[in-house]
């Protein structure tokens, strides 16, 4: 066995021992794959309990939004004839609105808000030059979309209405903010920020971005926070144990628990509407698939 094989083998064995020691064996057994095509994917999000949308790299230069039915695992492109890359989808709670990013020209990305019932779209086009929004997220009432946009060297949290108008600045702190998520009651805002050095997770008042409170404190990167449907827990991603894994914590930052334990990367978690499970992208043996699992 060469050193590469030994390295890989050791990682699997170590992961197994860690799982056994922490009683994760049962939880691991409860996970199941939702895809088996192994292609690069990201950004899964549930539309309803039986449907999710995710991003699939269908060719080297295109990321495509794909709808997946859990019942039969059938996949269909959301926008069949679209040739531009689309990524980071967000869905309103009633499933009517879909927000996502859409590439335009070189390093130029716009944000589209689609009314799937009326077949209408609104958009925030990219600014001139290299520019792009990121991380759209709906408020629970489905009336506004939060997103981040960089200007002046800081990446800030904004919101707009579903006609892509009435743009308001919500959070403007030093560094880079990303991944806004609003609690189901509409009162609390989660986001990641580098305001204190590296990526940490913060909570603030959703109405105006005030009362910012830091929830994580670690030298590693704590990213991609999302409120559980009941607003009591937060799922996030961290490399605090060496590689990207998924964690949950209470909404006040306490009671952090590791959810995944694989030698490769687990990322892009999203809550199932039942609040008991998450879907995520797991890289295993160099391949990428969606997995669904219980949350301890």
């Amino acid at each position: 066995m060469n050193s590469s094989s030994r390295l890989a083998c050791c990682r699997w064995v170590t992961a197994g021992l860690v799982c056994a020691a922490f009683g994760w064996g049962t939880a691991l057994a409860a996970e199941r794959p939702l895809t088996d095509d192994h292609r690069y994917k990201r950004d899964p999000v549930f539309v309803d309990a039986g449907t999710l949308i995710f991003v699939l790299q269908v060719r080297p230069e295109q990321l495509q939004l794909v709808r997946l039915k859990l019942a039969d695992r059938k996949q269909q492109p959301v926008h069949k004839d679209e040739t531009r890359s689309e990524l980071e989808p967000a869905v309103s709670r009633d499933g009517r609105y879909l927000a996502f990013l859409q590439s335009r020209t070189a390093a130029s990305v716009g944000m589209v808000i689609e009314d799937t019932r009326e077949q209408k779209t609104a958009e925030i086009p990219p600014a001139s030059g290299f520019s792009g929004m990121r991380s759209p997220a709906f408020t629970p009432d489905g009336k506004r979309v939060l997103y981040v946009f960089a200007e002046g060297g800081r990446q800030k949290v904004f919101s707009c209405n579903i006609q892509a108008g009435d743009r308001k600045l919500l959070v403007d702190v030093a560094g880079i903010c990303n991944w806004p998520s609003v609690s189901t009651d509409g009162r609390q805002l989660l986001f990641g920020s580098t305001r204190d050095g590296n990526y940490e997770i913060y909570r603030a008042q959703a109405a105006d971005g005030s009362e910012i409170r830091r929830l994580t404190r670690h030298r590693a990167q704590d990213v991609r926070p999302r409120f559980s449907p009941d607003g009591r827990r937060v799922v996030f991603v961290s490399n605090r144990d060496g590689n990207r894994e998924i964690y949950v914590m209470d909404a006040d930052g306490s009671n952090v628990k590791r959810v995944t334990a694989h030698p490769e990367r687990d990322d892009y978690p999203a809550w199932h509407p039942d609040g008991k499970r998450i879907v995520y992208v797991s890289e295993r043996k160099g391949r990428f698939d969606l997995w669904l699992r219980d949350v301890p």
Partner: peptide
């Protein structure tokens, strides 16, 4: 890989991270 993240159509973006530098490097 020239189009490692396909955020720009038909463009060999590579490591040319004029936007999303930190997200792309991390992701």
């Amino acid at each position: 890989s020239q189009t490692v993240e396909a955020i720009t159509p038909n463009y060999d973006f590579g490591w040319d991270t004029h936007i999303y530098n930190f997200e792309m490097l991390m992701d």
